[in-house]
Amino acid sequence: MRIHLVNKYYFCRQIQDMPRLRELFWSFFKIGTFTIGGGYAMIPLMEQELVNRRQWIDREAFMDILAVSQAMPGIFAVNMATNVGYRLRGFRGSLAAIIGNIAIPIVIILCIATCFRFLKDNDVFEAIFKGIRPAVVALIAAPVFNMAKTAGIRWRNCWVPIVAAGLIYLLGISPIWIILVTLAAGIIYGHYKEQRKEGV
């Protein structure tokens, strides 16, 4: 089984250095535990750990995994862990990487959640959170404008996000329906364009 996996999925430079499950777990444990602020903040740390330090994957493979993890649905960091773990040690490798990546964050959140229940009625605590709540809304709103640039929004297509936001905010339509329709339309359009290219 081990040899089979090596031949088929282990695309790395040093095949003799097949990582142990324990090492995979600890690498993703470090990545998950020492990044605050979510998935994309993990990219530099992942590159440092997986490409430079452990040398499990080369930079090109890293970029490929990055692109696929961003294109697929789900939590970006978990997608990365799944793919890297699978490449290196198959299904069990992906489990080790995922558990390593999310175990400590989950434990920390559970500790905070249980403690906060007792602090909820504390005046100081409430005062602090009264200040934080509008900041949270601003921290969701501001990236919208930065993302607009990277998503390629121009005058001719700016109606798309505006209509999407309006449908959700004003009409209460579920974002999931909007994503489904967009995916379907995008695939049909892409297919149509491909066929025209082939026809020419």
Binding site: T150, A165, G166, I168, G186, G190
Partner: peptide
């Protein structure tokens, strides 16, 4: 290319989705 086309459309819509959440 088909997946790439779908993704570029999705990216536009996601911006609207996050705006609505805010």
């Amino acid at each position: 290319p088909i997946i790439a086309a779908a993704m570029s459309w999705l990216r536009l819509v996601i911006v609207g989705l996050i705006a609505a959440a805010a």
